[in-house]
Design a binder for these strands. Sequence first.
DNA 1: CTTGACTCTCCCCTCGCGGGAGGGACAAGA
DNA 2: TCTTGTCCCTCCCGCGAGGGGAGAGTCAAG
Lengths: 327, 327
Amino acid sequence: MNVRFPIGDFSRMTHLSVKALRHYHDVGLLDPVEIDPTSGYRFYEASQVPVAQVIRRFRDLGMPLEEVKAVLLAPDVASRNAVIVAHLQRMESQLEDTQSTVVSLRTLLERPPAPIAVEYRSVPITPAVAITEEVDVEDIDEWWAYAFAELYAQLHSAGVAPSGPSGALYASELFEDERGEVVAFIPVKDGVSVSGRVSAFEVPAAELAVALHRGPFGQIDQTYGALGTYVVERELGVEGPIREHYLVGPADTDDESEHRTEVGWPVFQTTPAAPPAACAERRPRRWVRLVAGFAEAQHVHPVAVELESLGVGQPVELLGDGALEGG
Amino acid sequence: MNVRFPIGDFSRMTHLSVKALRHYHDVGLLDPVEIDPTSGYRFYEASQVPVAQVIRRFRDLGMPLEEVKAVLLAPDVASRNAVIVAHLQRMESQLEDTQSTVVSLRTLLERPPAPIAVEYRSVPITPAVAITEEVDVEDIDEWWAYAFAELYAQLHSAGVAPSGPSGALYASELFEDERGEVVAFIPVKDGVSVSGRVSAFEVPAAELAVALHRGPFGQIDQTYGALGTYVVERELGVEGPIREHYLVGPADTDDESEHRTEVGWPVFQTTPAAPPAACAERRPRRWVRLVAGFAEAQHVHPVAVELESLGVGQPVELLGDGALEGG
DNA sequence: CTTGACTCTCCCCTCGCGGGAGGGACAAGA
DNA sequence: TCTTGTCCCTCCCGCGAGGGGAGAGTCAAG
């Protein structure tokens, strides 16, 4: 008969706490070899130490008990490795998230709260070619890329040059209901023969409050946020879809910091001399929702300034190069 | 009066869930500017969006709410930065732990379960110089380094050469009570005039079961574990302190993989021809405890083999170079 | 036989919310 | 004005992986 250890000794052997061992017993991860029927005492064997060691390492890596169990019960090496690799990959991607969060936190704390410049502008009705579709917000990016690829392809094959920067209209439903109509358009002087999803379109005239976004398109939420804040503070109404104008984009330069995008907020009629006043009548609940969808990623007064040197280091690999493909 | 947003709109503005916002209110992290006394409705202002953003980033970094609160309420930039830096440092050290755990896990899963070779040996009484002291287990490493430094210094100044490899005795109390007597010794042929902590010592004769550890001293727990397992399986008794002999150490070569350490387990008298049998009489409860203190870090059968390519990548810095000292 | 160390079960606590029940509040449409 | 649907409220339970402690039984050494 092999030597039996009570839980306290086994705890010292494995560096697992007594509480943890009892818990592992409860969930069936590591059962004692014997339980005294009268006293209820748990007894473990020396041969269980290695198993406990493995459990401890995986727990140190934050692997959930269920998954550790899967590793221990895996019928073959391949399926076991699959579980381990999946966990390590989760850890790596989590680490990436952490690093990008540190970056964005630094941006948030460092950047001076540059006041946004908002310009009022009357835009006339504009002929264009366009793709119009109802889209889920989550699909926007992909839709956007394909739509403009298609538009430019048709203009190119028709031998027609744009008469101005391309742009898009975003229906307010998009921000209220997570789904709404989007129009991707490219202005053209003359009629163009179009086919497929592409159609002739007249971009409607509007009075716009316009903010210019300088830098990567991926950070445009900052400008949206700033404009949203601006609009909220002045309690401006909104009429019609939000616009974007792509003044300088990836087609023009690879330097993302050179990119320029205008965000246009359609306000009520006004003269350039007299900017629009608050318009309580035309400010229904829907309006608040709309702004709510925008007003984010502003710069931070209350905790700002001087946290200058938060940095991030190298990317990390927990998985080595030839990771387990052949397992 | 500024525009007020109900919790749902504010949730959309900040990407914080309604539940989270209510929780932050409960714990006093982010209070609404107004609470309708009759309906209990919470109302937030646009100016609170940036604060919420900051909260969200820190939460994404896993900072506890209490600490986020400390950041927001910090009276000056320096104390605020202190909190942030402390958190990022915790994250970095946690990451280091993760990486070393991956390494040790790989060792555990990869290394073939090499059976340990145990040799029985009779060692005679040996004159030596030694430092004897009662030590806490946690202080062992430091104590050990200083003790041998002192021993070698005195031998050197006395112009005496060791007559054999240095070694140490570890009383079993050390493993049972976390504290016990340790003797660091260096064998010498003749009497040496000694001073301070160092004294003349006779290393007692003993029957030893000896295991040889090859490699870094930091991994000696593996050999201890293997020897402990060996002893447990054969139910060998123990008499007297455990020994270590430092055959090849840092003084001899910088290549840690070349280091050699013997671990000696004192058994009862036996002839080399007839290895000691189990000795139930002399195997009190204390004995089990002693083995329990050793038997760890064995190699792993149940989940072993072929997980060959788990690797670790670069170290990570979340804190940049000139981190915030001047903050 | 006593004493002290050890073990058992059972219950509540953590942290940062998520899920849901049950019920009031509010804006839009009929 | 009523309904309808959507919001919002509070209150309670749950997770994961145990930690802390109460109250009671067990075990081995002196």
